[in-house]
Design a protein around this nucleic acid. Sequence first.
DNA 1: TTGTACGCGTTATCAA
DNA 2: TTGATAACGCGTACAA
Lengths: 335, 335
Amino acid sequence: MNIYDVSEKAGVSIATVSRVINGNPNVSEKTKQKVLDVMEEIGYTPNVFARGLGLNTMKTIGIMCSDSSDPFLANAVYYIERELRKNGYDSFLCCTGYELKNKQNYLNLLLSKRVDAVILVGSSFLEFNKKDNGYIINAAKEVPVMMINGYLNNPGIYCTLCDDYQSTYDAAVHFISQDKKDILYLYTSKSYSGIQKMNGYKAAVSEHLGKVNEDLIQICPGNMTASKELLLLLSKGGLKFSAVIAAEDILGVGAIKYAKEAKLTIPDELSIIGYNNSLLATCCDPELTSIDNHVETLSISTVSNLMRVLNGENVPNKITISNDLIIRNTTDFTI
Amino acid sequence: MNIYDVSEKAGVSIATVSRVINGNPNVSEKTKQKVLDVMEEIGYTPNVFARGLGLNTMKTIGIMCSDSSDPFLANAVYYIERELRKNGYDSFLCCTGYELKNKQNYLNLLLSKRVDAVILVGSSFLEFNKKDNGYIINAAKEVPVMMINGYLNNPGIYCTLCDDYQSTYDAAVHFISQDKKDILYLYTSKSYSGIQKMNGYKAAVSEHLGKVNEDLIQICPGNMTASKELLLLLSKGGLKFSAVIAAEDILGVGAIKYAKEAKLTIPDELSIIGYNNSLLATCCDPELTSIDNHVETLSISTVSNLMRVLNGENVPNKITISNDLIIRNTTDFTI
DNA sequence: TTGTACGCGTTATCAA
DNA sequence: TTGATAACGCGTACAA
């Protein structure tokens, strides 16, 4: 059931069949109908390999994401996939994990599969050591590379970011204006996003309070128990803090658990802000005030930019989308 | 940079280059090295289209999942992807949503992309109306179809299931043996899994208590607030229940919130069991006893069976994996 | 051990 | 409006 079978049954040449398939207007209505009927009848499907062989494209985008079980990334992947489909593109998904070598392998794999572009989801694709980003920069020489929450200023790389710096800056300023000056900052990852967030916090503190107390900046594994235990430990060690800004909701939930164990009232004795506005934020008790980074907008914007790039249009290298603070019961903001 | 360029530079024929690429032993070590060197030098990558055209396979598996932002499904996709990669296969991911028509379109799309097999993740791929499953049965005539948490007894379809019937049966029996006889069953979906779970509950109740009280079986949208509100309403309406079995963790969390609002102690006045043992179960307070359905095992088993199928081995049509009850603080089980 | 030549199913160019 | 044919890059049967 290939184009030859169709052409034979329809009594036309394969060229005509190809024209019908591709919507070429230079076919008489009558011939066109005949061909369509035959295709329907024998259940013909074009062979993507043969097509790809000539065109060297399969209308397919490679998506890389470090961990699809991370709710933020999973949501992003979901929206990206949906938007791509709307535009007639399919996608390859690769869950790369966090090791550089794997990321490199997967990116090469995608290129060898002749994807039309690559989307890197999440800031874990930027390495500390700048040289280690070479594989991304090289890939961008072959196909467009879109990054979500990562930023590289190189030709062929287009970045869509959320304004993590500003959100933690604002969050810290909120606390400070409530006279909560000893704000603990809790984070898990030193990814691009992670650093932006931390810088926002630091900027707010140093601008409004003078010096940043490095003891109030703590790294912590990305699970609830670790977060709770760390806070208990810090508190036992004599560290004072009346507010927590957590770079992930799950760390914020840990802070809630800590407050309960330490018999602190929320939000009076301890205020908490989480990050991502994930499901977790409404499941805990009290519910967690959290920063919403608009995954859907981020994803839609990325795909729409990609379409413009593939279309040869001129697209800015960097687009930043602002975040929202979703106020719940772990703070007494009114705003 | 195709096989001809390599053959020219290396001073051999394309056949020899092809042999080197495919690890054919009939090449002298010397020639082989020369070819490998040239490939390295000019950065040659085989063209998958040309290769696929001849072999009619691209070593690619299509994965369908209704919603990759569902934590259970996201985890499954993650593990499946990892296992496929280990076996040298890539994957196309399709997030289909819940509409039949979309599912059909996506499945056809995958077939037209010439995937080597299809994996359907999650029980939402089985329709109520049996005729509506025809598209799956048809697809199985072309390529192997693997189902996770769905069951169709047809040639070419291989199902891996978790024993949802048994888990809710056991959960209900646990409650009954504690003299908690008015067990509310809360569910969201009438998928294959959903029905298995409900049947387990019903069987336990009717075997140990006689008649099933249909008022104690309630459907509820899959979010926390809906669950809480529903329980408040039922309770106001005079319905008595001292235990809740929730078909999703999120519904269980809603039940916790309800208990707090109704000033019921947990687990004494109200015991709760959730389902999936997701992150949510440890984020709420008290932490939620939940049924763990072993996503990872489910995924590994599915991929390993698929490999055997592709290898022409004989594989059973149905494999069932048992669940675990993870005991936390919303029950006073000791076991 | 190596090379030649054909087939895979399309798209696109050119001629009719 | 239609048809014949080259080109796409690879695997492989067959010949050397």
